[in-house]
Every structure is written in C-alpha cells, then in structure tokens.
C-alpha cells in the first residue's frame, strides 16, 4: 500500500458521497494502514457509520485527525 495507490482518493469520494464535511485524508502509521480523516471531531459519528466500507479500501483503522495539519512525528 502506497500513498499513490488510489486508496485516499477513493476514501475521500466515499466520505463526501455520505455527506461528511472533511478537509482531506491521508494514510498514517508506519505501515500506512491508518486512514486519517482531516475533519472536525464532530464528524466522528458520520465517519464511523461508513468505517467498515473505508476499511474495505485497504485500511485497518479509521480515525479523525485531532487538530494540527497532519504532519509531525511521534
């Protein structure tokens, strides 16, 4: 799984088709297996409702980015 494999674009399309108000998405984690949705925390319930379908795109975990710009190391 790599950033250019289309998973992110498909995840964004799925999220938007379900009415989620999001700023973007990225793959996180050393294995790239976490979908990080860039959105307000208030969107958690909406993202959760389609989490199984998002995981089907090739992610193990679906999460919302809490603040910041999605960059930085642990």
């Amino acid at each position: 799984m790599t950033p250019g494999d289309g998973r992110i674009e498909r995840a964004l399309a799925l999220l938007r088709s379900h009415g989620a108000s999001i700023r973007g998405a990225s793959a996180a984690g050393a294995a790239g297996d976490v979908l990080a949705v860039h959105a307000d925390a208030a969107q958690v319930a909406r993202v959760r409702s389609i989490a199984p379908r998002l995981r089907e795109l090739g992610f193990r975990y679906v999460a919302v980015e809490l603040g910041g710009d999605g960059r930085g190391d642990a």
Partner: peptide, 25 residues
C-alpha cells in the same frame, strides 16, 4: 471524547506525540 477532542489532543501531544488521531470505532 468527541466533545473533549481538543483536550485529548493536547494531553497526548504533551506526552511526546506530534500527531494525534481519534479512532472512530
């Protein structure tokens, strides 16, 4: 957790993490 997302992010960043995610499930 959703209601206190900012506090969670702050606490976890103070612990040494640069990036904090909340698992939706």
């Amino acid at each position: 957790g959703v209601a206190r997302a900012a506090e969670i992010a702050s606490a976890v960043r103070r612990a040494g993490f640069g990036r904090v995610l909340l698992d939706v499930e």
